[in-house]
Amino acid sequence: MIKVENLTKTFGPKVAVNDVSFTVQRGEVLGFLGPNGAGKSTTMRMVTGFLPPTAGRVTIGTHDMLEDPVPAKRLIGYLPESAPCYSDMTVHGFLSFAAEIRGLRGNAIKTAVHRAVEMCFLENVLHQSVDTLSKGYRHRTCFAQSIIHDPEILVMDEPTDGLDPNQKHEIRQLIKRMGEKKAIIFSTHILEEVEAACSRAIIIDRGTVVANGTPQELKRKAPNAGAILLRVNGVAAEVVTGKLRAVDGAERVQLVKDENGTVTARVFPKSSANGEFSKAVGAAAQGWRVEELHIEEGKLDEYFRSITASDTAKK
């Protein structure tokens, strides 16, 4: 449904997006991750046809965004980053306008507005001026606008930004549910959201794609994935690390914590972790008071930090 090929965008001398390619099929939810200023919003603006790319192509369905923008835009629902709304309108007026400009007429407008209002929980503010809405409600109003015509493709720039925890949960569920029948791209800084709602994730750093895979695949690439974490009580740290280092197949041992007689250590295997190695570590710990022993799954945020070398991450 969405095909992005070698997309590049420069602002003067600055390269904001550099040779980005990916595709999103119907039934897929693509999470877009990356540090601030990585180029997520810029990419989405090119996908939705707001910014013309410096180089590259965007194909929406069968339409080229540059050559055939109107039919391409018809397929998309878009929630921009700042969730802009016409502040001189009421929520109802704004949503009706959005429905009308999307080509709906008469009763279809009423039905569409009703549906979107229900999905985004906007009943309470329906006749309130957008001007006076709280940030979260404003965000939801713009979200409602993006799904008003039940589009086949949804592009959402930080859809859960500014929402309360309940709403975040609801919107995530909604995205996941809609993702079964649509092609969805959304960006976020909340990594749990990716695991909760995405079927695939792309990590983008300084304009280039640095990772692309399912959340599970990405987690497995985290530096600690496959390591064995061991917590024992009443043994000296040196003894623990010494003995673990001697375990067959251990590459290195990391002392995580040594506090009040409780020692936490991590053993990295030479090859990927397996039951044998785990058993060997268990055997080495024989006789110690073991509080915890498990193979680490790897965390998305660890992986994220290990591959995005933005200014903040370097510090």
Binding site: R45, T48, G49, F50, P69, V70, P71, K73, R74, I76, Y78, P80, S82, P84, C85, Y86, S87, A98, I101, R102, G103, C142, Q145
Partner: peptide, 14 residues
């Protein structure tokens, strides 16, 4: 100023 131009220009109209 309000950023609504981003909405307007991504809607299906010229």
């Amino acid at each position: 100023r309000q950023g609504t131009i981003e909405l307007l220009m991504t809607m299906p109209l010229t």
